[in-house]
Simulated assay, not measured.
Amino acid sequence: MLTKQNCSNEAVTVTQAESQVIIAGCSQAVAKAFEELFNFIDENTQVQKVIGGKPMAVIMFFEKEKINVWGDLRNKGVQVDFSTQKKCGVISLSGPRREVLKGVTLVEQILSSLHYKRVVMREPGAKSYFKEREHFFAASAKQEFKCLVRLEEQSEEQLEDQQEHSNIGKPYSQVTIGGVTIAVYKADLCTHPVDVVVNASNEDLKHIGGLAEALLKAAGPELQQECNELVSKNGSLQPGCAVITGAGKLPCKNVIHAVGPRWRKDEAEKCAYLLRRTVKKSLQLAETYNHRSIALPAISGGIFGFPLEECTYSIVSSIKETLEESTGDSSLKEVHLVDIALNNIQAFSKALREVFSDYSPSYSIAEATGVSRNGSGF
């Protein structure tokens, strides 16, 4: 693919090299072309998101009583499926990325507004009594109280699922080195409870896509304003650099904007070096500002093209090296590796296992692939 777009007597050249798209030209034209290209990809990329973690009755209520909501989503090209996974109801949304993400936000808001109560009947004969009259009670409750009644028996699988949900907020895997805990979490970086979060940013600190855009929406426009002032004063950042700003409306104290390298297969060693440097700079900034906990995503993953395993391994290796070089009086006590995507969580967990193989690790109950019976997590 080779296209040219005239912009104020200058040109932007777009080329495709393997799995990368490279935009070259004057900075303003490149920024505009990047935004247009990102929007095109955002509108046309097909994704699937699964919403779960709610009782079956809540999922069933949404399916039966909120037909207008998921009907509108289908009209926008989003396929909505209601299914059962391990005795738990889920809602699957698939289709254009932009519409799916909007749909996920809408559905989660509706599900959060629904209230439910589980009542356990232990009296002799209660089970058979309600089972025989289930349809009558369900119809009466719906007519008089506009609610859904569902009878369920608690199986071993459901007890296991409850245990799984009780692990929400707990690390998938973790290890401790020199009094600092490095842990992997499946979570939203916008709401994760730490002192400082790391934003995987571009060189101009323009938060126009991916995680950066999500953080900006959660933080408010003041975050972009502060970044604009930094770039106006000091110029664009180079790969391997990081800067710190306020956090706006985010629940953390600060945001570190880390500029990782864009992957080039023919410069793999240089890319790995720059990524390690980016992580090191981020940890040093957190320590300089006396923060106790920091959360990092898969910097340089995603649109920067860094292969996932190499990306996570480089990040974890840099964390280990930086902590080993520390004088021991660091304020930093927790380093969280955070992502919402399961494959990223699995990659971080694998990297943690490999990098710290010579340590005596402490792992959580569950790893990304499921609950561990022996407590090892792997």
Rank of each mutant, 00 (worst) to 15 (best):
L2T: 12
Q5E: 11
Q5R: 12
Q5H: 11
C7P: 00
S8N: 12
A11L: 14
V12K: 00
S19P: 00
Q20R: 11
A24S: 15
Q28R: 13
A29M: 00
K32Q: 14
F34G: 15
F34Y: 11
F40V: 04
I41N: 11
I41G: 11
I41D: 10
N44A: 08
T45S: 12
V50M: 06
G53E: 04
V58L: 04
E63A: 11
K66W: 10
D72P: 08
L73M: 15
R74D: 06
V78R: 06
Q79N: 14
V80G: 10
F82V: 05
S83H: 06
V90C: 05
G95E: 07
R97C: 08
L101E: 14
L106T: 12
I110L: 14
Y116Q: 08
Y116R: 03
K117A: 09
R118E: 11
M121W: 09
Y129C: 13
K131F: 10
F137H: 12
A141Q: 02
V149I: 15
S155C: 05
S155Q: 03
E157A: 12
D161A: 13
Q163S: 11
H165W: 14
I168H: 09
Q174S: 15
I177K: 15
A183V: 06
Y185T: 06
H192G: 02
D195P: 05
N199W: 04
N199D: 11
S201D: 07
S201E: 07
E203Q: 12
L205F: 03
L205E: 03
G210N: 01
A212T: 04
K217P: 00
A219L: 00
P221D: 03
E222A: 09
L223Y: 02
N228F: 01
E229P: 00
V231Q: 06
K233C: 09
K233E: 13
G235E: 07
Q238N: 10
Q238T: 10
P239K: 02
P239H: 02
G240P: 07
G246D: 08
G248T: 02
N254Q: 13
V255E: 01
I256P: 03
I256C: 05
A258Q: 03
V259S: 01
P261D: 02
R264E: 10
A268F: 03
K270F: 05
L274I: 01
K280Y: 01
K281T: 08
Q284I: 08
A286Y: 06
E287D: 15
T288P: 04
L296M: 10
A298M: 02
A298R: 02
S300F: 02
G305Q: 05
E309Q: 15
E310S: 12
C311R: 01
S314V: 05
V316H: 07
V316C: 09
L323F: 07
E325H: 10
S330Y: 08
E334T: 14
V335E: 09
L337R: 07
V338R: 06
A341F: 09
N344P: 00
Q346G: 07
S349R: 07
F356Y: 13
P361W: 09
V371A: 14
S376T: 14
F378A: 14
